[in-house]
Write a protein that binds this DNA or RNA. Structure first.
Lengths: 342, 342
DNA sequence: ATTAGCACTCCTTCGAGTTGAGTGCTAACA
DNA sequence: TGTTAGCACTCAACTCGAAGGAGTGCTAAT
């Protein structure tokens, strides 16, 4: 059986109504709510069909209907109408340029959480594709060197390197020149691929000491494989009883604190991005089991060449998809503008 | 009326029992639980006295007694017996030296939360008293300088400084020498006190440009006024219904996510540290209103000269104070050892 | 001073009864 | 043939009262 126009209208009405109220929707409500001018009895027949087809279901025999995961999926795929969101605060916040990436991300998460009333998370952009701009080794004291590496996007990495023997000014200078000529302009991804080993060979002479230092620089560059994740509005989940009943809240709060699990979700979202940059996971579709009663909407953002990160919104399945997606689109373009302005 | 020996014993028994079970304690239980060999009727008389004196209270007329805040306070102040805690994991974790302070702190928080089954937080040590060891300005490109500042304890701060006009190699070198000779060995606290202004005067010649740079370096040093706070085991609060009823969980989770509020608690704890390094806040005694049904135990730790931070444990009023304080003492000394080993 | 005994309180649990929203089905209607 | 009115039925949610039981306070005896 196919969904005819009328069934679609009814399904849409059921979902819309349920998103608003969170209560099972009865036939009488639909009969009045829509412009179909049908009696509740007719609606009941149609709803029975919709149930049979798997789009809606009844919590119990004498209750109204609520959307099934399949119903939500259909809604998100074919019936949604993005709401344009304008929020002034964000504009203002982003206009006063944040020098620290961290501060910026935290603020974005906060604004998103406040605007949507759901829980928000944001991952720092991964830097794998970013090029090394500047490397400098300095002597802190006879036993320690300080390595400073600046990467495109003005991200700075530091590493203190303990050294066994003292190093001469001359050698330090040589090493600086070597590192800069060899590594500048390469991406971290490329550097990971064995360039370090090649460099060590090339340095030859002072074997072990130089080797140590080069290794340490390599480590500093490679660090940050799993990017930082910031969250905000975790307590928004308490607005939705279906997420808080029966100890579910505990699991969710735990998931939000253990950034590691969120990382897998963000990874998944980056990998399967179909090009629109926005993805919706309904219930079990998300790879995190504690979110089986949630929907997750993720958006990939880009802060210039290769610096991709993900924003995620976690809420109940009956979240306001239209609004959430609108919000995320707005944020995406705002972050885009931000980079261009630099 | 004074607390005689017998009343103390009974009070202790009531509290101990309540800590274990979380249920109001009746006279019959006490009569069997203690070695006083008194009938329940006698206990009842004593308990009536204790209630009048404010140490215990009844949830309702025909229920047993539970400790009041005053009762807990008395227990903590005079009757507690610290339990020695040995946890192997921590030892192992700390033995493999963490190079990153952040990683270390996160792990400590996690271990504490897992061991106590309460929520844990830890603040990064404040660096106000730490001396500047090394300052370096480098030219990233014609419009940007990079300032790197290393502070005692091997904490590194960076700042990218945009400059209006190019700066000559010569001037950059002069500036480096100036900054190092003037600021090295001073604490950040001292630097805040107007040394920056004096420096600007002294530089004189190139007025505005140099001024800009010096200001930026000063900013970098002054940043981090409110130190980072890490939390773990927030979801442990769900183990205790008295913290989860009536939407209290939402508030608490919010507080734990908004690190800012926790900061005030940590501040308070640092300021009023009586010397033992450990403090207990029962109910309203903590300066955070969402914690009015909680007890908070804080411990000041020291990672060497002047680098003081705070660990906090948040749980229900009926927390196992003995165990918690034992745990914190152990952590304190472990962190202390750690520093000495460096 | 201590204790046994007893009446009393009040939370908790359970089941029965009531209510009301909503359904499915049938029969009538356009 | 699609739509609708009507009606019996279902079931969660709520209310109410009775029973149970833990624990108290008081009194009188030891």
């Amino acid at each position: 059986m196919e969904l005819d126009e009328r069934k679609k209208k009814i399904l849409k009405a059921v979902i819309r109504n349920y998103l608003e109220t969170g209560e099972p929707v009865g036939s009488r409500t639909i009969s009045k709510y829509t412009d179909l001018n049908l009696s509740s009895a007719t609606i009941r027949n149609e709803m029975a069909d919709l149930e049979e087809m798997g789009y809606i279901l009844q919590p119990h025999t004498s209750a109204g209907r609520i959307p099934s995961d399949q119903g939500y999926r259909f809604y998100v795929d074919t019936m949604m109408e993005e709401k344009d969101r304008e929020f002034v605060e964000l504009k203002e916040m982003l206009l006063e340029r944040q020098d620290k990436m961290e501060t910026l991300l935290k603020q974005v998460a906060k604004v998103v959480a406040q605007n949507t009333q759901y829980a928000a998370m944001i991952s720092a952009p991964s830097m794998h594709r970013n090029k090394v701009k500047f490397i400098q080794l300095s002597r802190l004291n006879p036993e320690q060197l300080l390595a400073v590496i600046v990467v495109e996007g003005n991200v700075i990495k530091n590493n203190i390197i303990p050294i066994a023997d003292e190093i001469s000014d001359e050698n330090l200078l040589k090493l600086n020149i070597l590192l800069n000529t060899q590594l500048n302009g390469l991406t971290m991804e490329e550097i990971n691929l064995g360039i370090i080993a090649a460099l060590k060979q090339q340095a030859g002479v002072h074997g072990s000491l130089i080797g140590e230092v080069i290794d340490a620089v390599g480590d500093a560059i490679k660090a940050d494989v799993d990017p930082e994740i910031y969250t905000s509005g975790t307590n928004n989940i308490f607005r939705y009883p279906e997420l808080t009943d029966n100890g579910k809240a505990s699991e969710l709060v735990g998931t939000f604190e253990e950034k590691q699990q969120l990382g897998s979700l963000i990874q998944e979202s980056l990998e399967t991005d179909p090009g629109t940059g926005i993805q919706v996971y309904i219930g079990d579709e998300a790879p995190i089991k504690s979110m089986k009663d949630c929907s997750v909407v993720t958006a990939t953002y880009e802060l210039g060449e290769g610096m991709k990160g993900t924003i995620g919104i976690v809420g109940p399945k009956r979240m306001d998809y239209d609004k959430v997606i609108g919000t995320l689109r707005t944020i995406q373009s705002k972050l885009d503008e931000l980079y261009k302005k630099e």
